[in-house]
């Protein structure tokens, strides 16, 4: 499989160099592998740090900037960052008001961020964490590692980031992040597996006429495999899983997210189906986002994330944001 890379060992370094060159608003620390706002920490503002495996761009580095993250720690492809990166980022963004870690619920991310939070605590930085676990495809039970963090991560980063800009204390910023996560659910569908640079071949096999329901964002297979079907059916399968868990009503923020290899025109086809499904249930889409935001390299497919909004969450969503991946109102 052809890849636009210089070599499998330099994928992260080369991509970070590109981000630094393309976005003067960012400062990239290549040695420690951290992406910062070039403007540095603001005294009295809670710092937001997230991170995770690479391959999900623009998550997380593309969401560093005013109104969202203060720093992002990219790991290797689909591998969580190491504690050293997170400790470095945490002390660098601390403006004296503490630091919030936004962590997707995967065993590796949780282990590494937990170790980092303890080390940062030893260094005297107050750290709180929000665990994002919005993926309804995984049964949250004793028999799994729990629900995965997927599309709602973007919502948590945006909304907690907006509240942090107002000077709110760490406990409130953490609470709004947890609230957004609790109000959000996601479900993903793959039309093809993805190809990691190191493996050079698909991470799982999927036939020409099959789709995978309930996929995660690391090229892992999903829960069930079904015959390929029109967009309407796939969207309904995803939304009925979300509806069963969340109960769709009221005002909603909806993300129709591309996994990296699906054209925008197909995502809009999916969005139209989401819109009609919610209308049938008397629910409204009051805020929306369509595009590639939480990707899985070159995987074809999409995920739907729904967040049940409140007036306050809508205000925070609308607040100005200026990052490479999201920008409005400024």
């Amino acid at each position: 499989m052809k890849k636009l890379i210089n070599g499998t060992d330099t994928v992260i370094t080369d991509a970070l160099a590109g981000m630094a060159a393309a976005h003067p608003s960012l400062r990239v620390d290549q040695e420690n592998r951290v992406i910062y706002r070039a403007s540095g920490p603001r005294p009295g503002k809670v710092g937001l740090v997230s991170g995770g495996g690479s391959g999900h761009e623009p998550l997380h580095g593309g969401f560093v900037g005013y109104g969202m993250l203060d720093a992002a720690c990219p790991g290797e492809i689909f591998t969580s960052p190491v504690p050293d990166q997170v400790v470095e980022a945490t002390s660098a963004v601390d403006g004296g008001a503490g630091v919030l870690h936004i962590v997707k619920n995967y065993t590796g991310d949780v282990l590494n961020f937990t170790m980092a939070a303890e080390l940062s605590g030893d260094e005297g930085v107050e750290v709180a964490s929000v665990l994002v676990n919005d993926d309804v495809a995984v049964q949250d039970s004793l028999y799994t590692a729990g629900r995965r963090g997927t599309g709602a991560t973007l919502f948590v980063e945006k909304i907690a980031g907006a509240l942090a800009e107002t000077g709110a204390p760490l406990a409130e910023v953490a609470a709004v992040g947890a609230d957004v996560n609790a109000r959000s659910r996601s479900f993903g569908v793959a039309l093809s597996p993805c190809v990691t640079p190191a493996a050079g071949k698909p991470t799982f096999e999927l036939g020409e006429t099959e789709v995978e329901l309930g996929i995660g964002i690391h090229g892992e297979p999903g829960r069930t495999r079904v015959p390929a079907a029109p967009a309407r059916n796939l969207v309904r399968a995803a939304l009925s899983a979300i509806h069963d868990d969340l109960g769709l009503s009221g005002e909603n923020l909806v993300l129709v997210n591309g996994m990296g290899g699906t054209p925008l025109i197909e995502l809009y086809i999916a969005f139209a189906e989401v819109d009609s499904y919610l209308r049938e249930r008397g629910a409204q889409i009051t805020r929306s986002l369509v595009g590639n935001y939480v990707t899985s390299l070159d995987m074809q497919g999409f995920s739907i994330t729904v967040c049940r909004l409140t007036d306050e969450l809508t205000r925070l969503w609308d607040a100005p944001v200026e990052t490479p991946g999201l920008r409005w109102g400024r």
């Binding site: 495996g53 790991g75 290797e76 591998t79 969580s80 960052p81 190491v82 504690p83 050293d84 995967y106 065993t107 590796g108 282990l111 590494n112 170790m115």
Partner: peptide
């Protein structure tokens, strides 16, 4: 290993 590997296998 903790510092270099990441993922779950590094810490474990």
């Amino acid at each position: 290993l903790i510092r270099k590997v990441g993922g779950a296998s590094g810490p474990l």
